[in-house]
Design a protein around this nucleic acid. Structure first.
Lengths: 141, 141
DNA sequence: ACAAAGTACACCAGAATAGTATAGTATAAA
DNA sequence: TTTATACTATACTATTCTGGTGTACTTTGT
């Protein structure tokens, strides 16, 4: 019941980009240093974010990363799913073969966990990085 | 971001006990067979539930398990914490040494995840096994 | 006494986590 | 056009977690 370290790093990387003037790009090394993230691991994470179209990458000299869309349009859920894939608090919620009882929709455990999971997903989708970046500005990045 | 298999089994074991007439006990073997849970693994899970005072165990001939309190007083959260320990959706929320920035309370990521985590915990605490057992009765256990 | 049932602790294979290494590709500037 | 810079791709690895299993022991009703 825990987000992994890569996701936490991804939050901080996207937050870092969200705090930049629109369109400005920055290198992985800058983010790694500022956010204290192991460089090589960050590069891997950035590739997932690029593939998810959350950020854009620029190769070569003067390359780097920038947001692929305005931070208002990037939610916590977007970043989590880019790194970890779809959220499922119980694995039977995604793959019914894991349900020992094969009751699936009639299983009360399944039913209630699905409700809770949907609320969680909704909440994660309700917070975007413009909001977070504003908060982090107030508390000095 | 997922509950483990042991927790899922624990839900089903407690649900099984919740559906019994009050005070009635049943052996691990019965639960294991009915709920399709590997016997030895279930015994281990039952010990965690016993230690958390969610169920009571009886040793020897005619032994078995029963709820330690009425099912209304047992929540999803109780069972999760008995098996997995305290919920923390990001490890920095429990152990600040994991926060790469050491900002802790001033970190916007930390702040928002804490809010979301508290809502999740509240929801898990809002559902008890009397409610679940009632639902499972309607859909035939 | 003995069989039934839970307890305690140690062990194990496989997967996931959190990285690291090596080699390659694109690009701006000299 | 060479070169340094910066991202990409793929593979590897050490450690931890997950989901169990094995062996020995204790309690208890008949």
């Amino acid at each position: 019941m825990q987000l992994n370290q890569a996701t936490d790093y991804a939050f901080r990387a996207v937050l870092h980009l969200s705090a930049l003037p629109p369109g400005e790009k920055v290198t992985a090394q800058t983010i790694a240093t500022a956010q204290e993230i192991p460089m090589r691991f960050l590069l891997k994470i950035m590739r997932s974010l690029t593939q998810a179209k959350i950020i854009k990458s620029f190769r070569g000299v003067e390359g780097g990363y920038a947001l692929a869309k305005p931070p208002e349009k990037i939610t916590l859920l977007d970043v989590i799913e880019a790194i970890e894939g779809p959220i499922r608090i119980n694995r039977c919620l995604l793959d019914q073969s894991y349900c020992t009882k094969h009751w699936a929709p009639h299983c009360p455990v399944h039913y209630i966990l699905e409700k809770i999971q949907n609320n969680l997903i909704q909440e994660l989708a309700d917070h975007n990085f413009a909001e977070l970046a504003k908060k982090s500005h107030l508390t000095q990045i």
